[in-house]
Amino acid sequence: MTVPEGAAGAATATEDAAPLLSLRGINKSFGAVHVLQDVDFDAYAGQVTALVGDNGAGKSTLIKGIAGSQPFDSGEYVFDGKQVAVTNPKHANELGIEVVYQDLALCDNLDIVENLFLGREVTKNGILDEANMERRAQETLAGLSVRTVKSIRQVVASLSGGQRQTVAIARAVIWNSKLVVLDEPTAALGVAQTEQVLRLVRQLADNGLAVVLISHNLNDVFQVADRISVLYLGRMAAQMKTKDVKSNQVVEVITTGRSDAIGGITNGNGELK
């Protein structure tokens, strides 16, 4: 089974659709440090949008703002066509935004079902409805085409890195979320497991979710992403379609903030501003 090329298939179908998440003129400062300056960012339903940039470019600050854990100072936050003010993580969850952080935040001593429903257990008359949760967990994993897990009642400690990532992602989508942000999901994984997780990332987008993928690995990005957004020193250096660019051009933007082939700061469609 192969992972589809970045901009193939689903991307063309939603070519002109409005973005699910649209940020305009975002600013964020920590004291005197202006971490994000006038950042624009779009993420589309059914597409994987890669967010790349060197260390300190502002990627983490951007997703923490999206997730509401560190709200932006100023700027427009439009989600699903409506202007919203996301000021805490709970609000983001209610909108259908889920973030899978790098450390996954799983409880090793609990099994897969227990982790998927942690903090949001399904109860009937105050008693845990295990059968219901187990069934929904099975459905969710099946919907993600996960077939590497032997039993969904095994403890998470017994899972491989890729499987743990899968559980964390499944937890993000089990509540019908619309936008999933994945922070370096393949950073600690081997070749086969990376492949497995990327396949899952693609599956999420093909299921209609908007996926924001943060990655340092351009191979991964070119393998699954429909769009690439490059942050450079707190500014959005470029938002491009994967099919329009080459890897070395992206590297150039990441390291210098501009590329002769692409140009400098561009708008959402990869055109020069």
Binding site: Q138, A142, S145, R147, K150
Partner: peptide
């Protein structure tokens, strides 16, 4: 996606 065997 085929029918997935997730249970023991």
């Amino acid at each position: 996606p085929t029918k997935v065997e997730t249970t023991e």
